[in-house]
């Protein structure tokens, strides 16, 4: 897992240096709808519901859990 993580990160960094935009090209990226999590509570409730109904959780961040869900 650690080795895969290192390789992916290195590849990502190498590949990423040729991507991107200039500061004045961020008009669309600055929109609320273009954020990684555009809807705070939609995401929060989804994580909470599926945490209590499925065996998998996490991926988007750390922490969370913390529920004796039925």
């Amino acid at each position: 897992m650690k080795r895969i993580a290192t390789v992916i990160l290195l590849m990502a960094l190498a590949g990423c240096s040729s991507m991107g935009v200039e500061p004045w090209e961020r008009d669309l990226l600055a929109k609320d709808s273009m954020q990684l999590v555009p809807d705070y509570f939609d995401n929060f409730y989804d994580e909470h519901i599926y945490f209590s109904k499925e065996a998998s959780s996490g991926g988007q961040g750390v922490g969370g859990g913390g529920c004796g869900c039925n």
Partner: peptide, 22 residues
């Protein structure tokens, strides 16, 4: 929990993210 992630602006219209968690 441990997580490492990379977020990358691809171009003016595209943003990607990759996270690995343990």
């Amino acid at each position: 929990d441990f997580m490492i992630g990379v977020t990358q602006v691809v171009n003016r219209k595209t943003l990607i993210q990759l996270n690995l968690s343990l």
